[in-house]
Design a binder for these strands. Sequence first.
DNA 1: AATGAATGAGTTTTCATTCAT
DNA 2: GATGAATGAAAACTCATTCAT
Lengths: 202, 202, 202, 202
Amino acid sequence: MNVGKKMLPKQKEKKIKIFEAAREIFAEKGYENTTMSQIAFASNVAIGTIYEYFDNKEELFFYVAAERYETFDKELKIQLSGIKSAFDKIRKYIWFYFYYFQKDPVYAELWLFNIRLNKRLSASNEHPWMQQSGRVIIDMLREGQAEGIVRQDVSLYVIRHMILGSLEHAMTRWLLKGKVYDVLPYSENISDLIIEAIKKRS
Amino acid sequence: MNVGKKMLPKQKEKKIKIFEAAREIFAEKGYENTTMSQIAFASNVAIGTIYEYFDNKEELFFYVAAERYETFDKELKIQLSGIKSAFDKIRKYIWFYFYYFQKDPVYAELWLFNIRLNKRLSASNEHPWMQQSGRVIIDMLREGQAEGIVRQDVSLYVIRHMILGSLEHAMTRWLLKGKVYDVLPYSENISDLIIEAIKKRS
Amino acid sequence: MNVGKKMLPKQKEKKIKIFEAAREIFAEKGYENTTMSQIAFASNVAIGTIYEYFDNKEELFFYVAAERYETFDKELKIQLSGIKSAFDKIRKYIWFYFYYFQKDPVYAELWLFNIRLNKRLSASNEHPWMQQSGRVIIDMLREGQAEGIVRQDVSLYVIRHMILGSLEHAMTRWLLKGKVYDVLPYSENISDLIIEAIKKRS
Amino acid sequence: MNVGKKMLPKQKEKKIKIFEAAREIFAEKGYENTTMSQIAFASNVAIGTIYEYFDNKEELFFYVAAERYETFDKELKIQLSGIKSAFDKIRKYIWFYFYYFQKDPVYAELWLFNIRLNKRLSASNEHPWMQQSGRVIIDMLREGQAEGIVRQDVSLYVIRHMILGSLEHAMTRWLLKGKVYDVLPYSENISDLIIEAIKKRS
DNA sequence: AATGAATGAGTTTTCATTCAT
DNA sequence: GATGAATGAAAACTCATTCAT
């Protein structure tokens, strides 16, 4: 996503201000309980101005969602770079998932409670990043198969359900319980379990 | 849950009519986008009548949620009865999960999109069934440990995150994609993966 | 007023039960904020039963209003009996007003906040007691004029405005301030002022 | 009170339109029986627009109440200025009270039937004008005492009950009877009575 | 006579969106 | 481009009254 393509710096800044306020408030209150005037107030902009940059509330939300993914994805790629073994990559992925969401619970809320379940977003073709969001995992698994260490008898998509499901479930409970404990230690356990599950056995 | 204890049959019927309409519509549109007048219309009852039976919209939603769990739980216990091996129980559980949700997508929507993420419900102590809803899995795992076939080096709660997460993720995607394929076959693959993950190794 | 003329004792009792509950609740919450179901609950009777005895909410309220007046009036007459001098009667009246309302603030609320300002009640000819409610004062004043101690140059109706106004104002403030002080001592001061005002001077 | 400080003229006008409609309707129907949509209709404005200017129905009512007092108070002060004798001031006050309320029965209704009995308004400290509304009378009486013409043996607050009570009672009856006669002549009689009551005697 | 479930018009308030300035 | 006043449909919820039992 590109916030502010074809815009002069000044205007871009305003769009970003709105955008950041929206991100914060959507995360805090959820989509339904966020009002446009809250966003206008927080970004120090008139309500009408929001509509200069975004068609409507939902579109603004989708932009926020897209940006979240891009940021996560960019950092993820950095984290994964240089790692050879598929299993190590997977471990890194899992660790990064917990690390990133615990560090930025605003994003965690946004993703787990609002974005990932949005039907309209899920259906829309304008937001292909969503479909690709799980591509990394498939790729890692395929590499593992090429390495000969990941089993070939189970659909990679099923494995991805297991991986993402485990992570999302753990994080969701963490949020619902009030973020009162440290989730990062889950990383190792879950990695162990998952690698044991997908390891090729002779 | 008991819809309509102490009520005459006629009244009980009306409460059930409202209840069923609510269940359907909550599942279809989610909590926020369901209106009391939609429920009234669908149950062929005046708006005021809903308030004769349920204090407010949220209470009605929670009743629906509770009933969902009880029905699932009751059938689940029947399915599990007579099975000795912990692994077989887990396989049965996973199979039943897919079977039940695919058979009753109204419940699936309700659970996956509304109930499990409801903060107020999650926080409330009046709804202990919610906390107990994952007890079965812990019990099965403990039995497996007693049998000597489930690993002891990983927290059972982490394992539960993996199990429930895998199932929820698979079902959620199925719903978001429009229920256009058969999820039941996932059951075997996921069972295999999970058992491989938790199996005790010497 | 006669609550339950032509009724068998049993039915009369039920009407009285409703009536007493209504009196209490109207006084406590005011007309607008009292609901028929509150009255039904408090009188241990079905809502429909109230409508067996009273046409509607307003009529019930008017009955309560009438009864209040009758009770006050009856006690007042006893208090005044045997007193000869018009001034002493007036003093007694004023004392009794404070005494009665302070003793029964439920009635005070009812009268001062609800009944005396009700336009429909004021207009209705079915409730002649209301018009007569100030008759006693006019009578006392006339006696005073006959005695030759009350001035004749001012309309008795104006004097009555002064007397009732003084009492109502003092009591109203007492209620609005939360009934935290004793109003009875006002009695003597106000009596002094009023007698000084109406005394015939040569 | 200042309706519309910091507002551009156009907006100020709209606020005033709403305000005036509210005043009229509150006076006519009372607080409980006035609806926001009636006010919206009468001021030729959308319902939502009312909420742009006033937080809620009660606040709107309190604004109306405050304005009433200020207008009355301002004119009163003009009327009283230049008068030396306390008794003349009191006579003027009484005359003005009748004059003002008879001239503007909308205000009379508002004050006598709604404002002066409002418990929440009475309790709130945000509306100090209410408490000060009777200050003028106390001041006049004190001046009279300083002049040596007003008795010192009776609490000024009791005297105020008598004065305000007399006026309010007379006006209230006038309204309840349909404003079919002239109240202004009461002014002299009531003044006579009150001065006779409070005159210092040796 | 007694009931109380059922009604639905009516209430206050919210808020995404528009559009004249 | 920027504004924010204005909009009004729509929401949850209330409650006096009715009427079949």
